[in-house]
Design a protein around this nucleic acid. Structure first.
Lengths: 230, 230
DNA sequence: TCTCGAGTTGACCGATCGGTCATGTGCGTC
DNA sequence: GACGCACATGACCGATCGGTCAACTCGAGA
């Protein structure tokens, strides 16, 4: 009810996620984070025991929110399963295009980036990123299972292994996209997905236009207000 | 040439490549690099204008050496094209297994890691990693072209796009492997490759670890014992 | 013999790193 | 009104960062 509620903690979390995605964990220090979030250093360490602690909080939030985000967005069951997958990858491509337009570079996957940078150095971070990936894998697998049930996919397709392959392909596209920074490289992307799914390329017809996955200002049905308790 | 000159520069290059692969660019500073390479700081900056300069040199070397390395190694034409691809990915899996055994973690792809960490921050690094990826893509594409010519692959398969997809898949596997740090996750790997190539999974039987009898061009692939090797 | 320059050595630099801490302030409660 | 507490504020800390520098060694060429 407070007009200017002290969303300090929230601001730090969001700023960190954004900054680390745009650059890297080591590349953005606590001081700059504080500058961007308009928070004083003392306050920062009032909310987070350390920089690493903040990273784990960011990843934890991802792990807890990504499923509902996916379910409400690209994987919303308002279209058949195969189209959801296509819509998800189309969203990725659109995101990449926006990155290029805005900054001339692609930022890649925030989770994949962090994992690549820190998985060997900080075991807890490795585990946290794995948890996020596992959720995505589950969402993929569930969708694929539906696809099999509906008859869009071959009955002998292994949903779990295929989900894993899809996730790998997606991460690889993120890595290559970031390295090449060229949207044209993304052509032929659909073909790979279709191949992994064992369907003809035309089975993944482009979902009309970019779905409105980003204009969601409304509160989701789940009543839990944004609070990063862990 | 230089008969017994101290290979200082060489030592720095190798140490940096190794250390940055095991950890990350920002995670290993010049001081530690010097410690490991047994080089004094002054010498370091005698050979390289800056830390970033060294990184570019490391990447440059990769770009120049990787083609001949691939051609002499996994892509050596002593086996049919498809088997070379299979051998390459088997080598990756083997590498991952060794990483786990030695350190309990997977290091991922040295190029992919660097790109993920620095592509948005240092454009020159982005370009340098892209160059390495481009070489790999070329080697893949060439092999695929051969595969089409020999009849191992469908005549309408697009070698360039498929090569790109294969490279993406490989990078994704590296990212997920690093995050999950679990060799079992690598099962089902072959299936994805086969799917991307449009061949049945059994067409990619795991090749022997080392070079084997050459000139088996006319022999169709035969089933080989599954991964019992450990 | 002298010079010269590639390479070595380690002290040193300012900036920044992640993190600490004493103090201040506003608010809810008794 | 006084106390407690969540949070704000910014000076401050030692360590480390990437990088500089002057002095030194030493072998090849004149």
């Amino acid at each position: 009810m407070n007009p200017p509620p002290p969303d300090t903690r929230e601001r730090i979390l969001r700023t960190a996620a954004e900054a680390w995605h745009a650059q890297s964990y080591d590349g953005v220090g606590v001081a700059e984070l504080c500058r961007r979030a308009q928070v004083h250093k003392g306050s920062f360490f009032h909310f987070f025991a350390s920089k690493e602690d903040l990273l784990l909080a960011v990843l934890d939030r991802h792990a807890h929110e990504i499923r509902s985000w996916l379910d409400a967005g690209p994987f919303c069951p308002d279209v058949p399963p195969l189209q959801r997958v296509a819509r998800f990858f189309a969203g990725m491509a659109e995101q990449a295009r926006q990155d290029i337009a805005a900054t001339g570079a692609m930022r890649g996957c925030p989770i994949g980036n962090v994992s690549s940078e820190l998985a060997t150095r900080i075991p807890a971070v490795r585990a946290a990123t794995a948890r996020v990936f596992a959720v995505m894998e589950e969402v993929f697998a569930q969708t694929l299972r539906e696809g099999v049930a509906v008859g869009e996919l071959a009955p002998d397709l292994d949903p779990d292994i295929t989900a894993r392959a899809l996730l790998a392909y997606m991460q690889g596209l993120a890595v290559l996209g970031k390295a090449f920074a060229d949207v044209n490289r993304l052509d032929g992307l659909q073909r790979g997905i279709a191949a992994l799914l064992g369907v003809p390329a035309h089975a993944l017809h482009p979902p009309a236009t970019h779905a409105q996955t980003k204009d969601q200002r409304d509160r989701p049905p789940r009543a839990t207000p944004p609070r990063g308790d862990d």
